[in-house]
């Protein structure tokens, strides 16, 4: 469970981001064309949503602003190493997906998927032999289901296929 202070900080930031997104929508929608002979057109619906996001986002951010300010004015020990480790663990799936996108065309989807599964299992504490077996089985199952049955052209890779 998240502690309350962290949750409040998250709410404040999310409120700000949503409000900014709303502002972007409103600004972008200004240039949309209207219907002939009418004052409204393609911009009307996005404008309503955009304004709702601005108002709601600001409201959410402001209602959580005081606890966040208190959090920053109260000195607290910062555990940099733990924070960095936590950040790294959190974004592990993101790095792995990006890794897949970068390597699949070269190594092929089969091998890249096996690597991805094996790496995530090993880093999650699965025994190496089990991680290897599961990785190979997963990649083979995906290859069988998607390439042979559903005819999805997953990348074959240039390393093994010239």
């Amino acid at each position: 469970m998240l502690n309350r202070s962290s949750q409040t900080f998250g709410e404040c930031c999310a409120g700000g981001v949503v409000a900014a997104l709303g502002l972007l929508i409103v600004m972008e929608a200004q240039g949309f064309p209207t219907l002939p002979g009418q004052r409204y057109g393609a911009a009307l619906f996005p404008l309503i949503i955009g304004f709702a996001m601005i108002v709601g986002g600001i409201w959410l951010a402001l209602t959580n602003l005081r606890p966040v300010m208190q959090r920053f004015t109260t000195p607290r020990p910062v555990k940099l190493k733990a924070a960095a480790l936590s950040f790294h663990r959190l974004f592990l799936p993101v790095w792995l997906v990006i890794g897949y996108l970068l390597l699949a065309d070269t190594l092929g989807a089969l091998l890249t998927l096996a690597l991805l599964v094996a790496v995530l299992m090993l880093l999650s504490g699965v025994r190496p032999w089990l991680a290897l077996v599961m990785a190979l089985l997963t990649a083979a199952a995906i290859w069988g289901a998607f390439v042979y049955m559903l005819r999805v052209p997953l990348p074959l890779g240039t390393v093994f296929n010239g």
Partner: peptide, 27 residues
């Protein structure tokens, strides 16, 4: 409030692409 904002995010994503009324591209 958060549910409404989540909904707005979904609705805004739905506006991306060609507008069905005017045919103009949006976002």
């Amino acid at each position: 409030l958060k549910a409404v904002l989540s909904l707005c995010i979904g609705l805004s994503l739905a506006t991306v692409g060609l507008d069905s009324t005017t045919g103009s591209p949006r976002f």
